[in-house]
Structure formats: C-alpha cells, structure tokens
Design a protein around this nucleic acid. Structure first.
Lengths: 146, 146
DNA sequence: CCTATAATAAGAACGATTCTCATTATAAGG
DNA sequence: CCTTATAATGAGAATCGTTCTTATTATAGG
C-alpha cells in the first residue's frame, strides 16, 4: 500500500522541514517504494546504481529520516544486542524506547499469546514462510523518557 | 523467567557442541540472565568489568550464539535497513528470514489488527510505556531458503 | 543575472565487530 | 602427577558499515 501521490506527499513533508526534494532523494524514495521490505544503504546503492554515490545516499537517508519520510527498521542498528534464547528465558516480547534505545522484555497473558500464535501461523501459511519464532515489538517512549 | 538450573542447562548444551563452559562464558550468561532486556557487547563489558577483555567477550558471544544459548535481538545484522514510514506505506508487519536476512512486509486482516492494537495498549499501560508504533516480527525461513 | 544558501560527493575518520596469532589453560592418557 | 594435544584467551591488526569534513556545484529568490 503505497500512496499514489507519494511524491506529492513527500515533497510536502520535506517542504515543511525546509529541505528540497532533490533528484537523489527522489530516487531513494522511489527505490524504497518499489521494495517489498526494508532496504539497507548498500542494497539501495546496488539497485539505484553508481550515479548516486554512497556518501550521498547515506546523506539522503539521514535527511529523509529526520523529516519522518522513512524509518529505520528495528531502529538505527549500529550495534547488536544479545539475550538468552527463549528455551532459557521463556517466550517474551519487547518494549523498545525510541528515545534512549533501551529494550525491556515483557510476557503476555497466555490467552493472548495463543491468539498471537495462531495469527503468526495464519500469516506464515499465506506467504510460504516457515515461522520459527515471533515477537511483538512495541516502539515508544519508556517511563524514564516520557 | 530464567531457569533455576541455568548453568546446568547451558553447560549441557555447550557440552553437546563440544565447547567448554569457561569463566568468561559463565560471566556473560550470568550477566544476560540478570538483565531485563537485550544487551550489547559494550554494555556487557561495562557491567562485567575489565577482567573480561572486549575481544574475549565478543568471542564468548559468538560461541554462545552458535550453541543456541543466546540470540541476537533482531538478528545479527550490523546494518540498518530503511522503509517508508507507515503514514506513507501503511501499517504492516514483517517476515524476517533467519537464513538470508531478507525482510518482507505483510499486512494483516483488520479484525486481527484491532486485537493486536488492544493488546499493545494493554501491555504498554502495564509498564508505563507510551506506545508509538508496533510490529509483529516473525522470524523463520522464507520460501527461497526452505 | 547575482548571491546566499542548500546539496553533493570524494575521501578521511570513526566505532562496532571480526580476525590473527602468539600465549595460556585444560582434559585425558600414560 | 607429567605430558601432550587441543581449546580458549587476549592484544592488536584488519574490516566494514556509517558518519564527518570540506571543497565544489546547484538552486531559489531577489
């Protein structure tokens, strides 16, 4: 579901942020709009070609993110965080603070969990996908950052 | 929910993988068990102290991950992937392939979505968390990698 | 047109992670 | 107990994604 007036809306939004909707930025937006999932800078660079240098591409991504046109999947991931596997820690979900980046585990009531599980199975079946695990990732502001 | 016999179970699992449960590995497992959410190498190093050098800590993480004792939150990728913000692309969830790392967007039926939304609100309330967004992240094997 | 300002792009810098390799610890057999 | 083969450690180099710096180029508005 991508708006038909995508360029119009993005241009509007960028205007509100006092930045121009230049060729490099257009090409990044259009590449992302054509994707069926999130894309990294390297992947976009491969798709777009060498006309848009990597350093410019990164710059465009950063401008577009600041303007709220694009978002980093799973937050800006310049580091990897580990946790005990679920067979040790139990099944749980996450509250991710967009402000400070902290992540807190939460468990959910069994009755809800079984609904979620069924939903996961249904969605996976529809996409020929073999689910191994799932988690509800809730992004927002934690109690400290409110 | 961390098993009371954590060390016992981890030792068993590492044994099955022909690796020893050494001091460095123990201290990493115990730090993660004491955490209320995922932790980065740097965070663990800060908590554990300088007795376990960073390079050893990274090594421990990698061994523990191979043995299935710990898992990287959101997969191991140290790269950031972007997508159009939801006000442009619509609300959706993700199928993440643990094999090739690809991520595919999926939308879910409205009736399910409203249930999920209610659940998100309920969980957030219970944790003094202000939810801004949420997504069900389903990890597994995509049709290509099955 | 001019000019002030924004955007671009090449390359340096940076930070997280991985690799290399010499040293140290350990288990298992004599 | 020793010895020895193997695993683990740790210091530092190397790598890789990303960000920063800065000189150059493009553009909107006067």
């Amino acid at each position: 579901m991508v708006s038909l007036n995508l360029d119009r809306e993005v241009e509007q939004r960028l205007g509100d942020h006092d930045v121009r909707y230049t060729r490099g930025r257009r090409v990044v937006v259009s590449a992302l709009a054509a994707s069926d999932g999130p894309r990294s800078a390297a992947e976009l660079h491969r798709e777009i070609g060498p006309d848009l240098p990597l350093s410019s591409l990164y710059r465009s991504l950063s401008v577009l993110e600041d303007a709220g046109v694009i978002i980093p999947h799973h937050g800006a991931r310049t580091l990897t965080r580990y946790e005990l596997a679920e067979w040790l820690a139990g099944h749980h979900h996450h509250l991710v603070c967009v402000e400070c980046g902290s992540v807190e585990d939460i468990e959910i009531p069994k009755k809800h969990e079984s609904r979620v599980k069924a939903l996961v199975q249904e969605l996976s079946d529809g996409a020929s996908f073999t689910p191994l695990n799932h988690a509800l990732e809730i992004e927002g502001r934690c109690s400290k950052c409110t």
